[in-house]
C-alpha cells in the first residue's frame, strides 16, 4: 500500500472526450489521492461514468493525459494495471452460472504466480465479510437479485486488493443498510491508505462519506473540494436545476441535501 496519505496517485490534466461529435468531457483537471474517498457527483449525463472510465484507463481521452504512479496510464499492460487499480462497473452480467465464491475468487486472478498469492484466502474472506455475502457463497450468481449481484461484484473488486479502487455507482441497487455499509467500506479502504473514487447519485451519501467531492455539470468540473465547500444550496440548485436546502445534523459539518418541497 502507498505509504503516505494525500499523495496523488492518479493525475488527470486537460481531459477531453468526444463521442459522435458531442463533447462528453472537457477541460478536466483532477487528482486522485491516497487515503481519501473522492466522490464524483452530478446530474444524469454529466459525464461521471465517462470520467471514471478515463481515470481507470478504460477509455482513451481525445486530449489530455492521465498518469498512474507518474506513468501514462495507457502504457501499462492489462495485468500491471489490474494489480494497481480495481474497477466496479455498472454492468455486472455473468455469462455462465458460476457460483458466488468462484466469482469472488476471480478477483484474485491478477495475483496468480506472485508473492501476494499467499494472501488469497485472507483477501477473499475479508471481501466476503465486508460485503455481507457469506450466506450466498454456494448460490449461482445468475440466480441472485440485483442488489445481491452488486454486492458480490463489489466483493470481487475488494478481493483484488489494489491501491486504487474505482466504484461506479456501487450503491445503485442497494437497500438503505447496504448503501451505508458500502460507503463505510469505502472509508475503511481510504483509512488503509488506498485511493477510492466513487460515483454516487445520493448527494447526502456523498456528503457524509467523501473527503472530497467533484461536481460535474455538462462534462465540465463545476467544483472540487470538501463536501462543505462544494455543497452549497446555490451551486447544487443551479447544477441540478432544482431548489434545495442544505442541512447539518448536530455537531457534524457533513451536509445533507434536501429538495425544497411544499
Amino acid at each position: 500500500m502507498s505509504a503516505e496519505t494525500g499523495t496523488a496517485v492518479v493525475v488527470a490534466r486537460g481531459l477531453r472526450v468526444r463521442r459522435d461529435e458531442r463533447e462528453i468531457l472537457a477541460e478536466i483537471d483532477l487528482d486522485v489521492r491516497t487515503g481519501e474517498v473522492l466522490a464524483l457527483v452530478g446530474p444524469n449525463g454529466a459525464g461521471k461514468s465517462t470520467l471514471l472510465s478515463v481515470l481507470s484507463g478504460d477509455l482513451q481521452p481525445a486530449a489530455g493525459t492521465v498518469e498512474l504512479d507518474g506513468r501514462a496510464i495507457g502504457s501499462f499492460r492489462p495485468l500491471e494495471l489490474a494489480r494497481r487499480r480495481a474497477v466496479l462497473s455498472q454492468a455486472n452480467v455473468v455469462s455462465f452460472p458460476f457460483r458466488v465464491i468462484e466469482i469472488v475468487q476471480m478477483g484474485r486472478s491478477p495475483w496468480i504466480r506472485t508473492a501476494e498469492l499467499a494472501d488469497d484466502q485472507q483477501a477473499v474472506l475479508e471481501a466476503i465479510r465486508a460485503t455481507d455475502i457469506e450466506h450466498l457463497l454456494g448460490r449461482r450468481f445468475t440466480t441472485l437479485s440485483g442488489g445481491e449481484q452488486a454486492r458480490v461484484s463489489l466483493a470481487r473488486v475488494l478481493a483484488q486488493r489494489t491501491p486504487v479502487v474505482f466504484l461506479d455507482e456501487p450503491t445503485a441497487a442497494l437497500d438503505l443498510r447496504h448503501q451505508e455499509d458500502v460507503m463505510r467500506l469505502a472509508r475503511e479502504l481510504a483509512a488503509q491508505g488506498r485511493a477510492v473514487v466513487v460515483v454516487v447519485h445520493d448527494l447526502s451519501l456523498a456528503g457524509a462519506y467523501a473527503d472530497r467531492i467533484a461536481l460535474l455539470d455538462g462534462g465540465r468540473l463545476d467544483a472540487v473540494g470538501t463536501p462543505t465547500e462544494v455543497m452549497t444550496a446555490d451551486r447544487v440548485g443551479r447544477v441540478y436545476g432544482l431548489d434545495v436546502q442544505i442541512h447539518r445534523l448536530g455537531a457534524s459539518d457533513r451536509p445533507i441535501v434536501l429538495p425544497l418541497r411544499d
Binding site: D58, E80, A82, A91, M106, S109, P110
Partner: peptide, 9 residues
C-alpha cells in the same frame, strides 16, 4: 464481460 475481464488483467 469483456470490460471486467480487462479490469482483472
Amino acid at each position: 464481460g469483456e470490460r471486467n475481464a480487462r479490469h482483472l488483467g
